[in-house]
Amino acid sequence: MIVVDVMSGVLLGAGALFALSGGAGLLRFPDFYTRIHAAGVTDTAGAGLILLGLMLQVSSWETGVRLLIILLFLAMTSPTAAHVLAHAARRDGVPVWREGDERR
């Protein structure tokens, strides 16, 4: 059982780190499009690892299934939302940041 606890702890810790990194990237990256990539890190690696870590600690199958549903749902909706946002911004003429530009 201790092995499972350690594995769960590692997954949770790594997920929390990815979540924090994405948050920092959201502030640090220079423009809207690059920030979407940072937000993507929290939504995929962060969310996935945290939910997997929780799955190792479940006491009943219902809880596990709910966690799996949340994971699958986030994995389906987050790229869709990101694509729709990026597409709308592009249509609106939000310029792409190039190397050497001012940050916006």
Partner: peptide, 25 residues
């Protein structure tokens, strides 16, 4: 901070997904 509408929507969307994780944890 914005500066434009898209940055804000992106940030709020991410805030929402983190809320989901927060509630689960």
């Amino acid at each position: 901070l914005g500066p434009d509408r898209y940055n804000r929507i992106l940030a709020i969307n991410m805030f929402g997904t983190k809320t989901v994780l927060f509630v689960a944890v």
